[in-house]
Every structure is written in structure tokens, then in C-alpha cells.
Design a protein around this nucleic acid. Structure first.
Length: 289
DNA sequence: CCAGAATGTCCAA
DNA sequence: TGGACCTTCTGGT
């Protein structure tokens, strides 16, 4: 489900199957029917993601903007769209289908946004987004400039798509754990090198997420096999330190993982590995300033 | 079987 | 700050 790595995989999968093809576009559910009719039988040029946003480019300055929200899905499959029975689960808002030698189709369900935009409108969406760790041209200092000047909790800043685009609740929880940061630490108490290290780590984690389609964040020595615990079975399928592990033992120190709600979203952290207040060693450089 | 929760965002008060 | 959106999965009856 959808954090930035999911959208990147979708963009890649759509481009791979449909770029350069004249495609059939429809809206079985009906809510995108007018726009689908405009696009039907036109050339699909490519697809890209930025953060959790997906843009599918068609000829004639037309872009389908998709945001999956909390529970949207975009299922890509090979084979004819009306072939032997992919069961019609849910309501298909948008279907893209190609014919020819190797037919494929893509079904969109439950998305928060599915709109037909011009390039100017697409750029207006992008202008409101911070750097995406998955984009090679991303400038992490733009995110840092927001973080360093803000008293807002780092746990909230990481989820703010204007600060940094693509992080959701899982990457937030896990990145804070891996860097021993309490979610409520104000952004302006972080150090530059610390934030840079977080960014680089996030890039590596998300690149791995694109490769595998899961969010795995535990280091080798904390993997189930190494620690003799059963592998995690969960929606996102990956091995994590704290996300949705409330009340369970921290893999590193054994403390009970805690939870709370911040800006309407669930927080998870280890009270011992992620202390609320800065340690003396950490506080020193700030005092010298 | 049904209530509730979920990796997200927007809008109204 | 709380509800709407609209879909799937889980856990408790």
C-alpha cells in the first residue's frame, strides 16, 4: 500500500506496459467516465511519480493525476482486460488497457484523486511538494531548510509532503527509530549532519522498497533468523522495528514499544532507544552555539 | 457476519 | 479537531 515506493513502482510498471501505445481508457464505475472518453484511443506517453502522486502522460497536454490516499489501489496485470476473469472486486474508477501482441491492463480503485490535468495544472501540484528521496535530482537541503527553522515535531515534519514528499507512517516510524529520535523532538533541535544522515538512510530504504515492493527496515542482526523470532506477517509484509508493534518488545533493547496519536496519525516508538530529551552528548553542540 | 482499522488528504467548523 | 472519502482486511461475535 501506498507510500512513495509504491507510487514509483506503479509509475515504472505503467510506463513499461503502456508507454508508446495507443490505449483503451474507460471508467467502469463511471466517476471518471467523461475524462476517460477524452483519453480513449490516444497515445500514452509515459508515467512518473513524485512523492505519493502519480502522473500518467498522454498526447495533447493531458495528464492523469492519481493519488491513492489511504486505501486506493492500482493493479497492473498482463493479459486482455476482458480475458478469463480477474474477479471484479470493488469498483474500477479507471481502466487502461493495451491490445496487440502482449496485452496488459491496469485497474484503479478507491483512489482519493483521479483527475485529468494540463501540464500547467500538473506543475502546480508539483510546486507544492518537497523533494522526493526517490528522485535522483532531489535536493535534501530544501527539506533541511524547513526542518531547521521549525518548532514542529520531527514526527510531523517528516509526514508533511511540502517538506519532503513520499514518506508515510511506516517510513516515518522506522526512520525515527533507526536514528534514535523521539517523534516529538522539535525540528529546530536537529543538527544538519544528523538530518543529512537520515535523508541518505531514507533514500536507501526507499530504493530497497521500490526493488522489493515491501518496507523492510531492520538491520541484518535484527532479522527474524538472526534473533530467532517468527517473521512478521502484516499488510506491508516487511520487517520493522516499531510500526504497529505497540506493547511488543523492542528488537534492540527489549522495552515495550509505545504508541500515541500525533496530528491524527498513529505514532510508534521505543521509549528507551528514542528518548524524549536529548542526551548530554547530543545537547553539547547545541549549547556551544 | 459485522465493526473497526488502515501505509492519506481535504474540507468545514 | 473531526468527519468524509470509499476499499480491503482483520478480529471478535
Amino acid at each position: 500500500m501506498p507510500e512513495g515506493h509504491t507510487l514509483r513502482r506503479l509509475a515504472d510498471g505503467i510506463a513499461e506496459r503502456f508507454a508508446g501505445h495507443v490505449v483503451a481508457v474507460s471508467s467502469p464505475q463511471g466517476r471518471f467516465a467523461g475524462s476517460a472518453a477524452v483519453l480513449d484511443g490516444t497515445l500514452l506517453i509515459g508515467a512518473e511519480s513524485w512523492g505519493k502522486h502519480l502522473f500518467i502522460a498522454f498526447e495533447g497536454d493531458r495528464f492523469v493525476h492519481v493519488h491513492l490516499g489511504l486505501y486506493g489501489s492500482f493493479n497492473l496485470a498482463d493479459g486482455p482486460a476482458d480475458g478469463p476473469a480477474p474477479p471484479p472486486v470493488g469498483q474500477v474508477r479507471l481502466r487502461i488497457a493495451s491490445g496487440g501482441e502482449s496485452p496488459s491492463y491496469a485497474d484503479l480503485r478507491g483512489a482519493t484523486a483521479c483527475d485529468l490535468l494540463t501540464d500547467a495544472q500538473r506543475r502546480a501540484v508539483l510546486d507544492r511538494l518537497g523533494p522526493d528521496p526517490l528522485r535522483p535530482d532531489a535536493d535534501w537541503t530544501r527539506a533541511w531548510d524547513r526542518v531547521r527553522r521549525s518548532k514542529v515535531a520531527i514526527g510531523a515534519l517528516l509526514m508533511d509532503q511540502e517538506v519532503l514528499a513520499g514518506v508515510g507512517n511506516v517510513y516515518r516510524a522506522e526512520l525515527l527509530f533507526r536514528h534514535r529520535l523521539h517523534p516529538l523532538r522539535p525540528g529546530n533541535t536537529l543538527r544538519r549532519g544528523q538530518f543529512q544522515a537520515m535523508w541518505l538512510d531514507l533514500v536507501a530504504l526507499m530504493v530497497e522498497g521500490v526493488r522489493t515492493g515491501r518496507i523492510d527496515t531492520v538491520r541484518h542482526e535484527h532479522e527474524p533468523g538472526e534473533m530467532g523470532r517468527p517473521p512478521r506477517k502484516d499488510d506491508h509484509g516487511g520487517e520493522v522495528y516499531v510500526y504497529r508493534r505497540t506493547g511488543q518488545d523492542c528488537h534492540v533493547c527489549g522495552s515495550r514499544v509505545r504508541t500515541d496519536v500525533l496530528v491524527g496519525r498513529n505514532l510508534f516508538w521505543c521509549p528507551r532507544c528514542q528518548p524524549r530529551f536529548r542526551s548530554r552528548a547530543e545537547a553539547k553542540p547545541a549549547l556551544r552555539r
